[in-house]
Amino acid sequence: MKKIQRIALIGGTHGNELSGIYLVKKWLAQQTLKQWNALDITARIVNPRACEQSVRYIETDLNREFDIADLENINKTGYEALLAKKLNIEFGPKGNSPYEVLIDLHNTTSNMGACLMLQRKNAFTILLGGYVKHHMPHANIYFQDNVPEEKQNFLLTVAQQGVTVEVGPQPNSVLQQETLDLMELMTRHILDFVELRNNGTTLVIPDEYDAFQYAGNLSLPIDDNGQREGMVSRQIDQKDFQPIEPGHVVMETFSGEKITWQGDYTAYPLFINEAAYHKNHSAMTLSRKFVMSCRDYK
């Protein structure tokens, strides 16, 4: 495989997700990136105004502003829209970026533990997932290569490859040592993998590992006025990546009506009750569990 040299390490895409912000600050202050001196790593906090105010965003979600049409739309002049255009120049342009990997650091209020989210499914990401899973057996490896094209508007899509480190649960605008440690450990493994792979070092990667694949979303019940009529059931709240079978209760209305999972497969929910998705009434994202084989890529 081709060597990877240029990497962007991004914190502060959302200004109230403190682990990524403080990991970047810590590593820059302590010059930690010199540990991977063969790599050309640019570390940045990308939405400083939102970080200063400890809010997710100022006007619009920066992590939803990287659709090519939006980047090229001269009429989009809001704060995050213009910031996205600037970042697309710095790390892109999207579709022709010199950055081979962008690592975006995020927190979630959901109980997802340490989750490695991979934007594509290819030799690099499959082996990276196996390497991280070997070194962090309790990590969740999640592929979102099948997310609909209209939703491929994340910051990490600017680079050739996008990787998200998502850790939780952690409240917004709160910094917790356990969560920061998980993020730091996973990010170290990612950079170690790249450097060892470049050096031709034999990597310890399992022949196969359990992984998850994006499968859709479930919304909370709302009335004709857009007001919520229910909530996530206590039976699954805080149980990210745990299986739900068809007929399993997933939500409950305020009047006591049970809402069950109506799919025809065993689903594994994540981003359950994520605070940031309050406005769109998202209850959870759904995934399918599968076994990823590494044999053909070693």
Score class of each variant (00 low, 15 high):
109 T>S: 07
98 P>Y: 06
115 C>E: 06
98 P>E: 08
71 L>W: 10
93 P>Q: 10
99 Y>T: 13
73 N>G: 09
77 T>V: 11
95 G>H: 09
111 N>Y: 14
88 N>M: 14
73 N>H: 13
107 N>L: 04
96 N>C: 08
108 T>K: 14
85 K>F: 00
75 N>Y: 04
115 C>R: 01
114 A>F: 02
108 T>H: 10
121 K>T: 08
82 L>I: 07
94 K>D: 14
78 G>V: 10
90 E>N: 13
106 H>F: 11
82 L>T: 05
100 E>L: 13
106 H>D: 09
73 N>K: 13
90 E>F: 11
87 L>K: 01
116 L>D: 02
100 E>F: 12
78 G>S: 10
101 V>R: 04
104 D>E: 09
86 K>H: 03
102 L>T: 15
101 V>M: 08
95 G>A: 07
97 S>Q: 15
122 N>E: 05
102 L>D: 13
97 S>I: 15
82 L>F: 03
81 A>E: 05
88 N>T: 07
96 N>K: 11
69 A>H: 08
122 N>V: 06
106 H>E: 12
88 N>D: 07
79 Y>R: 02
74 I>R: 02
79 Y>M: 04
110 S>R: 06
75 N>G: 15
71 L>Y: 15
103 I>N: 03
107 N>H: 05
107 N>C: 09
100 E>K: 10
72 E>M: 11
118 L>T: 15
103 I>L: 06
76 K>W: 04
107 N>P: 14
84 A>I: 00
77 T>R: 06
78 G>C: 06
79 Y>F: 15
81 A>I: 01
94 K>W: 12
117 M>C: 11
96 N>L: 06
93 P>M: 10
83 L>T: 02
107 N>I: 10
81 A>T: 05
116 L>S: 02
94 K>S: 09
96 N>D: 11
73 N>D: 11
84 A>L: 01
83 L>I: 01
94 K>C: 10
86 K>Y: 01
119 Q>G: 14
112 M>C: 09
109 T>L: 04
99 Y>P: 15
87 L>A: 06
75 N>C: 02
83 L>Y: 01
69 A>P: 14
80 E>K: 00
75 N>D: 05
107 N>T: 09
84 A>R: 00
74 I>E: 01
88 N>F: 02
77 T>D: 12
108 T>N: 10
78 G>I: 02
91 F>Q: 06
88 N>K: 07
79 Y>G: 02
118 L>I: 11
91 F>T: 12
111 N>I: 10
103 I>R: 04
74 I>Q: 01
75 N>W: 12
79 Y>K: 08
105 L>V: 12
109 T>W: 04
104 D>I: 12
115 C>N: 03
103 I>W: 03
112 M>H: 09
117 M>I: 13
94 K>V: 14
77 T>W: 00
84 A>C: 01
71 L>R: 12
117 M>L: 15
69 A>I: 15
110 S>K: 03
120 R>K: 08
82 L>N: 05
105 L>N: 04
86 K>I: 09
100 E>W: 10
98 P>N: 07
98 P>R: 07
92 G>T: 11
72 E>A: 15
99 Y>C: 12
99 Y>L: 15
83 L>S: 01
107 N>E: 03
113 G>S: 06
105 L>G: 06
69 A>L: 12
100 E>D: 14
116 L>V: 07
96 N>G: 13
119 Q>Y: 09
121 K>A: 06
109 T>R: 04
96 N>S: 10
76 K>A: 03
122 N>A: 07
98 P>G: 08
